[in-house]
Computed example of a mutant assay.
Amino acid sequence: MRTNTPGRRLLGAVAVVTASVFALAGCWATADGDAEDSAVSGSVVPVVDGAPVSGWDVSVWSAGTEGEPAAQIGSTSSDRDGDFVVDLGSVSRDDDLVYLLATAPGGDDTTMTATFAAIIPTDATAVVLNERTTVAAGYALAQFTGPEGVEGSSPGLPNAASMYANLVDAQTGDYGAVLTSAPNGTQTEALPTFTSLTNILSACVLDTDACRVLVDAASARSDDRPVDTFRAFAQIARDPSAAPSELYDLSLTVAGDRPGLMAAPAAWTLALRFDGDGQTLDGPGNFAIDPDGNIWVNNNYEYG
């Protein structure tokens, strides 16, 4: 294997190469104060107007493992303040990837409304679902998301889910610190691309016709039509060049809180750049992929 060059920056595709692993679960509350999960709480607050929304159907899911589909473990509706609490039952926050879906009212067999998604990290004391969390979840979990939900094995699935916190703050629904700071921030196209993607979903929140355009574009080169807007973004991540102009035009219908892309991209690729710490692995020269899809990299040099 080739010796790595010290100080090289590693550019990682969000949907494929991920950063360090963290366990996933919800913010929890128990009567006796033990470590077992019993409930997850949060708020549905669209970015497009910043106001909490009531009457959204909220469901909590445990991701499936190989051969086992994702399982719904609870459901409720957001109240007039956009808040909700959902029981987690016997799901272990140490062993299971838990995620939330929230769907706007008014949908039927012919009309699709917006569906928000969020991954629930163990250190969250509250969670928010909005356009940013949905794009972040769709891109982070793209490889493992299908019509039946999120499904995958370790270490691939938890590695993918760990990218979520780099894109978005789970507790506030704001942009993630890694996305907004060097060597990302104003130095790459990741932040304006992410903003344009959230604007696309904001358009769907305001107009159900935009939801149809979003899903049509996401499935432009696929026979598999996404069943909701969360899965639409996962599909865009898997095939980012399918309909770049259509999606860009949709992004312009809503003014985001940050500048988005100035022109339609060739592909909706969302990538983050990472700096090493000068002491550990930084810029692998070669890597190998085993039959299970795991990436193996040797830390085969001393920084100097």
Results as ranks from 00 to 15, higher is better:
Pro6His: 01
Pro6Phe: 04
Gly12Ser: 12
Gly12Pro: 08
Ala19Gln: 14
Ala19Asn: 11
Ala19Ser: 13
Ser20Ala: 13
Gly26Ile: 15
Gly33Ala: 06
Asp34Ser: 11
Ser38Phe: 09
Ala39Gly: 12
Gly42Arg: 06
Val45His: 00
Val45Met: 07
Ala51Cys: 08
Pro52Tyr: 05
Val53Leu: 12
Val53Ile: 13
Val53Cys: 11
Val53Ser: 09
Ser54His: 05
Gly55Met: 12
Trp56Gln: 07
Ser59Val: 10
Ser62Trp: 05
Ala70Ile: 00
Ala70Glu: 09
Ala70Met: 04
Gly74Ser: 07
Asp83Lys: 12
Phe84His: 03
Val85Ser: 13
Arg93Phe: 11
Asp94Ile: 00
Asp96Ser: 09
Leu101Glu: 12
Ala102Ser: 03
Ala102Pro: 00
Thr103Glu: 04
Gly107Tyr: 01
Asp108Val: 11
Met112Ile: 12
Thr113Gly: 06
Phe116Thr: 01
Ala124His: 01
Ala124Asp: 05
Ala124Cys: 04
Thr125Ile: 15
Leu129Ala: 08
Glu131Ala: 02
Gly138Ile: 04
Ala142His: 02
Thr145Asn: 04
Val150Phe: 01
Ser153Tyr: 01
Ser154Lys: 07
Pro158Arg: 05
Ala160Glu: 00
Asn166Leu: 03
Leu167Asp: 11
Val168Ile: 07
Ala170Lys: 03
Tyr175Pro: 14
Tyr175Phe: 02
Gly176Ser: 05
Ala177Lys: 15
Ala177Val: 04
Pro183Ser: 07
Glu189His: 10
Ser196Trp: 04
Leu197Lys: 03
Thr198Lys: 12
Thr198Val: 14
Ile200Asp: 02
Ala203Ser: 09
Asp209Trp: 03
Asp209Val: 07
Leu214Met: 05
Val215Arg: 06
Val215Pro: 10
Ala217Tyr: 02
Ala218Met: 09
Ala218Ile: 02
Ser219Gln: 08
Asp224Pro: 04
Pro226Phe: 09
Pro226His: 02
Phe230Ile: 10
Ala232Trp: 01
Phe233Ala: 12
Gln235Leu: 12
Ile236Gln: 04
Asp239Ala: 08
Ser241Pro: 00
Ala243Gly: 03
Leu247Arg: 15
Leu250Asp: 07
Ala255Ser: 15
Asp257His: 14
Asp257Ser: 14
Pro259Glu: 00
Leu261Asn: 11
Ala263Leu: 13
Ala264Thr: 09
Pro265Tyr: 10
Ala267Leu: 05
Ala267Asn: 10
Ala267Trp: 13
Thr269Pro: 05
Gly276Asp: 01
Leu281Phe: 01
Asp282Val: 09
Asn294Ala: 13
Trp296Tyr: 02
Glu302Trp: 14
Tyr303Ser: 13
Gly304Gln: 09
